[in-house]
Amino acid sequence: MSLIFDHVSYTYSIGSGYETKALSDVSLKIGEREFIGIIGHTGSGKSTLVQHMNGLLKATEGKIYYNGEDIYDKDYDLKDLRTQVGMVFQYPEHQLFETSVFEDVKFGPRNQGLDEQEVTLRAYEALTKVKFPEDRFDQSPFDLSGGQKRRAAIAGVLAMKPAILILDEPTAGLDPKGRDEILGMISDMHNTVGNTIVLVSHSMEDVAEYVDRIIVMDEGSVLYDGTPSEVFSHYKKLEEIGLAAPEVTYLMHELADRGIPVDVNATTIEEACESIAAYYGRTGI
């Protein structure tokens, strides 16, 4: 599985007086089993970028290839692409519509043309994977809490068994506990299922702990693309564009500046703890 962006640009509302360039000259490659975080300020083009991945938006310039095939080719089956590249939007309210959660999750696989038994099986699997409480399968999706709605929405896409799962701000509007639960669930899923996950977020803190590659978007183009520690080493530039590196990065740099030789590339609290403890001659926490 590979998804390649070749010099992709996108302009909204061409010829209406409201023209805005949302993406300019983006080139990148997404491969197998990756866990990617796409980060950017509001209006940096991150949502526009991911909507190109499953062909919901058509680039005004440039090409996109999925498994080597040009997705803008006349004969290319975009409906099939959308089941391969699953996408969960920011607001679960935008997709939940059925009378029960279980029925709603069935919508995706049913559109794939699978037989009813397979559809039911997949819906059950997906809901279990997102750790949705089984006694609520028959509840109306409109009566759920924010976190549960989000789980139901993710399950609705997961049931199509996509090779890439894109999540646009999956933690928006959740409290810290709900956020950790959702992100932990996504991370667990990545480890067990091994599919590629693209996580869109505006919070470094969210992403740093889980992903192994970060793409920073700024004003429609890719500013940085690398491992979390590579990206966070530019923490001063990140601040300039309105993003911040995780607290840990600041702490480690501050300590290093004061002459304590700790690892400034630590990105999670655990790594930082080890590094500091190691300096004081201890191991473990």
């Binding site: 959308r82 997709q95 919508f107």
Partner: peptide
């Protein structure tokens, strides 16, 4: 705008 977003969300689930 809302219609546009909902359409996209459902198209992402294979709606036609």
């Amino acid at each position: 705008e809302e219609t546009d977003k909902i359409m996209k969300a459902q198209m992402a689930r294979g709606a036609d």
